[in-house]
Amino acid sequence: MEENNINIEEIMADIKREIKEKGLTGDMLSFEDVPYKKTPQAGGSVREALDFLNSNYNVQPYKELKGNPLKTSFKKVIRKLMKFYIEPTVNDQNNVNSSIVTVLNGLAENSPEKAISKAETLELAQKELLIRIEKLEKENEELRKALGKQENV
């Protein structure tokens, strides 16, 4: 694939050469080390349902009117007539929805499952930091050796 001096194969080969020369290894915590539940979760996607509630709890009293102009004008008149009843009811409902969503978020945030999950994540993060420390110590040792050689020269 070559066009306007761009050759993808060459670019890929250059990148691979550079990674080899610099000794970049991409050492990190393995995905296999991350624990997970092996049994199917009951109750479907609770988290996704909560996400949905968070973004949709505020209900709009009216939908956009489209289509036949005659029908639209008729609907507008009905809306005006019903406004005194619809709007306060929807506002009350939105206040209730908002409180429910706040409570549900609080419960989800403080659930025992979440606490266990947080502890597991911290353990994994510690593991990952140990990998990084080991890598840095190796680099440090190599740099010290190189510095020592220079001083001897």
Binding site: V34, Y36, R47, S117, L124, A125, E128
Partner: peptide, 30 residues
């Protein structure tokens, strides 16, 4: 969406957090 794949999704979230990049890996859901 991660509906039906919650176990895998949670594992991914934990992995990103453990690597210290959890805030910058955005799962949009459905």
């Amino acid at each position: 969406s991660y509906a039906g794949m919650e176990n895998y999704y949670e594992r991914l979230v934990k992995y990103a957090a453990a690597l210290g990049i959890g805030d910058d890996v955005i799962f949009t859901g459905h």
